[in-house]
């Protein structure tokens, strides 16, 4: 059983919802990434989405764009991100890591090399924002060969046919984008999520995480009630942005603890 599957099985058994925080690798500085990952786990993260910096993050709002820019100032590329995961994995054998980003850095490395290195480093899943199943099937075959789960997004605009298409290729969990827009947007439409989740459940036999637009403990709780996991990205990245070198790890830890407590009320 994969690490992602194990985590969701265990949560289900205890009737808990997953908390899935996101941070960008190399933000605010490469030396903080591994300590931040451990802090996320200590604060109650079940799965971690680790952003791979990209020069042209088209699906991201300004907050995560700036995180990418800060990381790229230190030339954090895919090689470094994989090294960071290895280092994290040497002290944490259980918390799944999902790499999230855009396809081009992987294209540049080559999918087979990438998948092999993911396996060696202890990466569990890969979410490539701009590779829908239609274009990615060859690429995703490399991932599966090395036991890496391809994670997919679904959106309010996804038709039934698209949900079925994604269901065929998705592994681990699916990530439902709660709104039409980029990461970090403010308008969360809970009633729309309420309608969509049962439609997804009918077609997809995997845990469903919901993200985009979760700003605080209250929205995290509201969303957690409707699905299997809550993804929080921009809010955490904002905390990193507003902290200094001395308090960044502590600040992120206390924010994630707060979110954990909220999600556990669901």
């Amino acid at each position: 059983m994969s690490r992602i599957q194990t985590v969701f099985e265990k949560l289900k058994l205890h009737k808990r919802k997953a908390l899935i925080p996101f941070v960008t690798a190399g933000d605010p500085h490469p030396k903080f990434t591994v300590p931040l990952l451990h802090a996320l786990v200590e604060a109650g993260a079940d799965v971690i989405e680790l952003g791979v910096p990209f020069s042209d993050p088209m699906a991201d709002g300004p907050t995560i764009q700036r995180a990418s820019e800060r990381a790229l100032k230190h030339h954090v590329g895919l090689h470094h991100v994989l090294d960071m995961v290895s280092e994290f994995r040497s002290k944490d054998a259980n918390t799944p890591i999902v790499l999230m980003g855009y396809g081009n850095p992987i294209e540049a490395m080559g999918w087979e090399t990438f998948a092999r290195r993911c396996e060696a480093a202890g990466v569990d899943g890969v979410l490539t924002v701009d590779f829908p199943p239609e274009e990615g099937h060859e690429a995703f075959a490399h991932l599966e060969k090395h036991g890496i789960d391809p994670i997919f997004l679904l959106a309010p605009t996804s038709t039934d046919a698209r949900m079925e298409r994604v269901a065929k290729q998705a592994r681990g969990y699916v990530y439902y984008v709660s709104l039409k827009g980029v990461t970090g947007a403010v308008h969360l439409d809970l009633s729309a999520i309420k309608v969509k989740i049962p439609q997804l459940r009918k077609r997809i036999n995997l845990p469903i995480g919901v993200g985009f637009g979760i700003r605080d403990a209250a929205t995290a709780l509201a969303v957690a009630k409707l699905c299997d996991g809550v993804v929080v990205g921009s809010r955490i990245v904002q905390e990193i942005e507003n902290s200094n070198e001395q308090n960044v790890v502590a600040n992120v830890r206390s924010l994630v603890k707060e979110l954990r407590q909220a999600v556990d009320k669901a």
Binding site: M58, P132, A155
Partner: peptide
């Protein structure tokens, strides 16, 4: 029919845009 010119072209976008 899927927008490919040999190995080039295609539809590499986030899910939200696929419907549009």
């Amino acid at each position: 029919s899927n927008g490919h010119f040999g190995p080039y072209g295609g539809i590499y976008v986030a899910e939200t845009l696929m419907g549009a």
